[in-house]
Nucleic acid binder design. Sequence first.
DNA 1: GTCTATACACTGATAGAC
DNA 2: GTCTATCAGTGTATAGAC
Lengths: 225, 225
Amino acid sequence: MKTRDRIIHAALALFNEHGEPNVTTNHIAADLGISPGNLYYHFRNKEQIIHCIFDQYAIDLKVSFEPVDVAEAIEASLLRYLDAVFLLMWRYRFFYANLPDILRRDAALQNKYLAVQTQLQVNISQIMINFRDAGLLALADVDLKVLADTLKLVASSWISYQTTQVAGAKITQTVIYHGVQQMLNIVRPLATELGQQRVTTLQHYYLEQEQQYLEQQQKITNSEL
Amino acid sequence: MKTRDRIIHAALALFNEHGEPNVTTNHIAADLGISPGNLYYHFRNKEQIIHCIFDQYAIDLKVSFEPVDVAEAIEASLLRYLDAVFLLMWRYRFFYANLPDILRRDAALQNKYLAVQTQLQVNISQIMINFRDAGLLALADVDLKVLADTLKLVASSWISYQTTQVAGAKITQTVIYHGVQQMLNIVRPLATELGQQRVTTLQHYYLEQEQQYLEQQQKITNSEL
DNA sequence: GTCTATACACTGATAGAC
DNA sequence: GTCTATCAGTGTATAGAC
């Protein structure tokens, strides 16, 4: 792998592990066993590294939220949406953990972020509308918008919120699975009877996913003994 | 006012104005026209200042959320709760804007915060239960808990979330009023018909409050011309 | 209580040799 | 492309005079 890519890769891992504000360019260089000078040969500054990571995030997001195929089943689209939310939250968790800070420091990045978010808002609203048209939700337009906004807020804030609510607050996949469950919990009481069934099915699915993840972690722990 | 108190006061104002991470002890001292050394005579470090501000916050919170009088009308308790949420979010907005960061740096503060939050959680759940017992909400226990959690998350994350979603993102009372409206919007579709009426009444009330605030701002702007 | 001066640690960033 | 060396800037915190 090229040094430039290795830097991006290491930076993402370190940011996720220790939090972006705690990771300096010196740390990144040290982690890779290269000199700070070398890092600055490849990047003008730390912000530029974050920009590159964000660009990758934006691409991942775009791919995950490709316009919904009309033929695609409603549940499939919601599943795909939630899977994407989960994956992105996990892969770029440092970002979700420090969003306000990172964006405040960098107006250019904030603009990029807003553009991405606007598109996301459109997509999530469309999913809600499809959901209603399929008779799974029975909500007025206003309430549908409120729901979409709430879900977006929960998705955006979940990791950050969890770090404040739990003491040692290490971000694990379990934390994120609980976020997905919370989102489904919010939708459920607003759904029609049919919709509630579908939501419950999804919740069981994610409960299983979480279970599998935990068992896998257990195996790893055991094999280390 | 004693210098110590003046420091706390100035620090809170500067934190709210510029964001806690952007305000150094030097800034605080300069703002008061005292020397940095003098500031450090009164406080061991910046963290201690934040601790003092937090203690004040905790007291304000405790006062606002005194156990609900059984005789108190349901709407009155909700109104009191929302007014308190609004006032605290406004008075200590720097805290809501940077919670994860501030708590991560200071384990002692996080413990204080968790203790306060636990109590808050109990109170908000009780309000929900009262709300249901009065026939304003028709929700199962599980859904009631989800609702309480969601409202707490929205309240905690609102300011921080708004700073990411809007470009220049200055925190104004309007932003916070919108947060209160969003909370009520979340409750409304879950309420009984009677409950929806009450929620709508509250929403009108806060819309008026916001309007009054805006008119007042307008007056100030005009008088400056 | 308050000031001036300064030490200390650390980050981001650059210059110039190899 | 990569390294060593180093600088300027900044923020926290302390020492000692007044």
